[in-house]
Amino acid sequence: MKTVIIHPERCVGCFQCRIACAVEHSRTKSLAGALFEAVRPVPRLRIYPGRQHLAFPNKCRHCDPAPCQQVCIAGAISRAPRGTVQIDPDRCINCAMCAMACPFGVLSYAPTFKAPEKRAVALKCDQCPEREGVGKVPACVEVCKVGALTYGEVEDAQEAKGRAFAQAVFTSLKADKEAGAAIPEMITLWRQLS
């Protein structure tokens, strides 16, 4: 399944993805329009201050089997034919059971224009189905300027990353230690991976 893949070592925490995500999940799908909507859209991914890296983007992994789907007492969480885990705002009762089940802490609770009568519903990444319908990549991936969010097959990404790390380890064994000493760790990693 194609999914948004996160490369935390590249993230600089600029929050462009959060803006793009909120805009994509608005009624008007434009930044100016979103600001004036009755229900202000919210982003569905979070950026944490990183520990190993400058910043850490966190979003739904669309697990299979999905713990959130198993605990949902309202039957609101299901798997879409394309493989993503989706929440039906019409069925969601805002009970926060999914927050207890999600090992990655990706859920948020806010109003959405898709269920305007509700105070809040559970929201998380839906991987922009309407964009996929017209052949576009998810909004967050499109705006990411540093390649921290990419879109592709998980297996391919794992393989590429494995190769890059092997190469990085190999290079570091050969490299002159003095030359690399002054560069911060994140930048070093970033350069090695590109």
């Binding site: 520990r51 713990p67 926060a96 927050a99 207890m100 089940a101 999600c102 090992p103 990655f104 802490g105 859920l107 948020s108 609770y109």
Partner: peptide, 23 residues
């Protein structure tokens, strides 16, 4: 603020030693 509750539940369910946690 309960959105991140699942992470605490994972730490409990997997019986991770607190000393070994990175934060």
């Amino acid at each position: 603020e309960v959105e991140q509750a699942g992470i605490y539940f994972q730490v409990m369910a997997q019986k991770l030693p607190v000393r070994g946690l990175v934060a």
